[in-house]
Write a protein that binds this DNA or RNA. Structure first.
Lengths: 365, 365
DNA sequence: TTGTATGCGTTATCAT
DNA sequence: ATGATAACGCATACAA
């Protein structure tokens, strides 16, 4: 498949030179703000460029300078990314921030029969990209392993279990779930369950860790039945919550790995003839818009995906700069953001065991 | 901001030539399957290329061939795209299909203070892209107006109100809503309301048209109160549905412009102490995964966004081919897909007015 | 302050 | 069947 002729009617630097009676070199330097160009000439060139709609060929510029101002983003292979509601938000943030520095964002899918690393490697070797952004990392992630050795600047949104030697932006998922559980404990809950996600995903693992930490720090028992892993969508949540509700001693509250799971849980509770936020409290994570429209509205932890995308882009640009300077003091920015709790109606004191303020105090460490 | 040195350790065609004792030209032709290369040589070159991991510089190739095998996609400006759950699906489909032909997908955001057309124009003039894909079009859409005159191949997912002269793939939204309404009528409903969307968006307009057509074809009244426009999320749905339920004569069924709206409606019904799917039937549109986990599970119309992305990519590639051939018989592929109804639990015969089979037959035209 | 010349890594058009 | 050589459009070192 052959592409389309580039820039149909586009004017090149040669055309501009002709038009102005200047040499191509002068035009180039004028437009790139070289100090050795007369202000008057620069203005003349600028004006003509604007007037004629001159836009330097990105391709030629890349070839001449040997640089590629493009960030690659490999879409999670289809079988994995069971509806990430925030993918487009992150991409939006990435693209927006990159655009401010004239960088582009290249999206790549993984064809059947290939894996993500192959795709990334081809992108690098063909010179299509100069840096990578990676999201939704597993605890052990081949993409990160590859990038560690590839010599391409990259920033990870999230982190792997071993994460000391590369740059990442993550949310403190563990703390988020510690906070969520402590919030419920503060309300008076003792029988708290977890609807957890795929433990290969690090965010799910971290959230589970936070759950367990908070429970054990508070000296609360967690029966094995109360921890359900591997839930990835509302349907899974529906079943898991039904099972939880059928337990001889059912929980008075559930913390859910995502809002999608939490909303499924809410419906399971309703289906069982109980009232979410009354008989069973529910806390989610994500801040999905829909959580405001559920009945009851969903109490949830949240992070700003769009902002995360922007920050990752900034880190990426900085990583590229560092690399070019070949500075010896290796700066490896690692940023941990906190999720914040959005109080709504789905979490309240347990009916049989009203909030116990003093107890709450005790569990705060 | 300066980019990263391209392809650190990458081997170039010159290196390969040296390694093999052949000229660069021969290597190039061998790898590009020119017929005038000895099979034996071709194999030798291929093997060496594989072994050394040679990958032609995409940049140099573009410059030499004057073609850009990259599709541009401008993200809807942030204020508009109130959570399009399918954006990432479409992008995924686009990228996947494009990759099969060696094409790339470039994502661009719209910086503050600029509009989408400016961004698109710059992408074209800088030679970064050779074609465009556009989604979520308004009835009158400046992006389409621009592309019509820009000379760049493009395909629209959806269509504007005037759409005879460009290539698009759309779902027959009108028919979808005719079907949805007829389905409800078949169940015995007569008092059917519409929770509609932003009428500037063509899909919302089309769905509304379908609703009205089906109602009037069936000879059913639709009080003005029964049609609510401009709902874009679950929150809006919550309020609108509450208003609908407070009406002296409340509807026995509502058709919703999206699943997000439908789910909001379900919760409003529940909040009002009624039962969705019993007191009020609800039909959505989108086939959101979460619709399977609501209580009751959501009856909805759906289309496959991923597949749509792939099809748009195919049409794009074909448009590029047509343009290169400069064929005189202008093929303008326009494809209309049908949404299919997914029966679940949220739509049933009205309680006070059980299904009337004969009536259903009558309304089928 | 400006012009000239070379190179970036390919492809494509000539020769040979 | 293969090897020179000239573009492609720009950036930059070096002259002037």
């Amino acid at each position: 498949m052959t592409g389309v002729k580039q820039r149909k009617d586009a004017i090149s630097i040669a055309g501009l030179a002709l038009h102005l009676g200047l040499s191509e070199g002068t035009i180039s330097r004028a437009l790139n703000n070289y100090p050795d160009i007369a202000e008057k000439t620069r203005k003349r060139v600028r004006d003509a460029a604007n007037e004629l709609g001159y836009q330097p060929s990105s391709t030629a510029r890349r070839l001449a300078r040997g640089v590629v101002e493009t960030v690659g983003f490999v879409l999670p292979s289809r079988r994995d990314h069971l509806s990430d509601p925030f993918l487009s938000e992150i991409l939006d943030g990435l693209a927006a921030e990159l655009a401010m520095s004239g960088w582009d964002l290249l999206l790549a899918a993984v064809p059947d029969g290939q894996d993500e690393v192959e795709v990334m490697d081809r992108l690098v070797r063909s010179g299509k990209i100069g840096a990578f952004a990676v999201t939704r990392v597993k605890r052990s992630d081949p993409r990160v392993d590859y990038l560690r050795t590839a010599g391409v600047p990259f920033v990870v949104h999230g982190r792997t279990s071993k994460h000391s030697d590369y740059s990442w932006l993550d949310v403190d998922n563990e703390k988020a779930f510690v906070d969520a559980v402590n919030f419920l404990i503060g309300l008076g809950h003792k029988n708290i369950a977890l609807l957890g996600g795929d433990l290969k995903m690090n965010f799910a693992w971290q959230r589970r860790e936070g759950f367990q930490k908070a429970m054990s720090d508070a000296g609360l028992e967690t029966p094995p039945d109360y921890i359900v892993d591997g839930i990835s969508d509302g349907m899974g949540a529906l079943e898991a919550m039904a099972t939880l509700l059928a337990l001889p001693s059912r929980p008075t509250a559930v913390v859910c790995v995502t809002d999608a799971v939490a909303i499924g849980a809410i419906h399971a509770i309703q289906k069982a003839g109980l009232k979410a936020g009354h008989d069973v409290s529910v806390v989610g994570y994500d801040g999905l818009p829909m959580g405001r429209a559920t009945e009851p509205a969903l109490t949830t932890m949240s992070q700003a995906s769009y902002e995360a995308g922007r920050e990752v882009a900034r880190m990426l640009l900085e990583a590229v700069r560092q690399k070019n300077i070949k500075s010896l003091n290796k700066e490896i920015p690692q940023i941990l953001w906190e999720a914040k709790l959005t109080l709504r109606a789905s979490a309240n004191p347990p009916v049989s065991n009203p909030a116990n303020k003093s107890h709450r105090e005790e569990t705060k460490k």
